[in-house]
């Protein structure tokens, strides 16, 4: 793969030192593309994205972004490396207003803050009217917009998203995923974890399948969509479990 923005090389990671959740996982994400990670429940998808974001300690292997080693960078320093992370749930401060959330995210922007706020509100018109409201009162879709807006406020070159469509109504879920796609047009790299396999594969450029904390298969998203072996082993298994 030419010119990977993100390069994860055989990492082992987990909260408890002697009990890793991820084993020798590798992943590459090309600049300006959408890469999606799928896999059954408990596969370690969220752990992988948290390990990249610096929240879960990495014990072996290395992660580089744009040629810079970011393996052991604290989560609060990720923004300065051009990386933003949008967690799955609790991704906004409910006790602050929408405006306060944005101001908080923009607090390092200095004199540009006002212009950037205006840009973000233009990009997410739904938030503009809600500025004085407590963020906890937003609908699920609006929360996701706010979380993404906060992530964008640091002008990241890569955004890590953990199940942006989780808990959203089908329409809002579709919108959230399209939003992710749209962001790549400005050259931003997107790495996302998704449960919504079919939608994600249609949208993504590249796809990794994770199970039991290890890499299984990876390939072009559209190709995997038609791959019956993958569907049987992982996606089918997942669907069965979800249906049970």
């Amino acid at each position: 793969m030419p010119d990977p923005a993100l390069d994860v090389r055989t990492i082992t990671a987990g909260f408890v030192p002697d009990l890793p959740i991820l084993h020798d996982v590798s992943l590459r994400a090309k600049r300006g593309t959408v890469t999606v990670i799928i896999g059954p429940n408990g596969a370690g998808k969220s752990t992988l994205i948290k390990a990249i974001a610096g929240i879960v300690p990495v014990t072996e292997g290395a992660i580089t972004f744009d040629g810079e080693d970011i393996t052991h960078i604290r989560p609060d320093q990720m923004a300065t490396r051009g990386i933003a992370y949008v967690p799955q749930t609790d991704n906004i401060f409910r006790s602050l207003t929408v405006r306060q959330n944005l101001d908080l995210a923009l607090r390092r922007a200095g004199p540009e803050a006002a212009d950037r706020l205006a840009e973000l509100l233009e990009q997410f018109p739904a938030l503009a009217d809600k500025q004085p409201d407590k963020a906890g009162a937003l609908s699920g879709g609006q929360r996701q917009f706010l979380a993404v807006a906060m992530a964008l406020s640091t002008k990241p070159r890569m955004i890590l998203m953990d199940e942006p469509s989780a808990g959203l109504a089908p329409r809002a879920a579709q919108e959230a995923l399209e939003l992710a796609r749209g962001l790549t047009e400005t050259g931003v790299t997107i790495l996302l974890v998704e449960q919504n396999v079919n939608q994600a594969l249609r949208l993504a450029d590249h796809c990794y399948i994770l199970a039991e904390g290890r890499n299984q298969v990876d390939g072009k998203a559209v190709e995997l969509l038609g791959d019956s072996v993958v569907a049987d082993i992982y996606l089918g298994g997942k669907r069965l479990r979800a249906g049970a």
Binding site: A53, I55, R74, P75, D76, Q77, M78, A79, T80, Y85, P87, D90, N91, I92, F93, R94, S95, L96, L104, A105, R108, M150, T154
Partner: peptide, 11 residues
């Protein structure tokens, strides 16, 4: 409210 999220937001 949420120390982990605060950290993600650069605090």
């Amino acid at each position: 409210e949420n120390p982990e999220l605060a950290q993600i937001n650069g605090i």
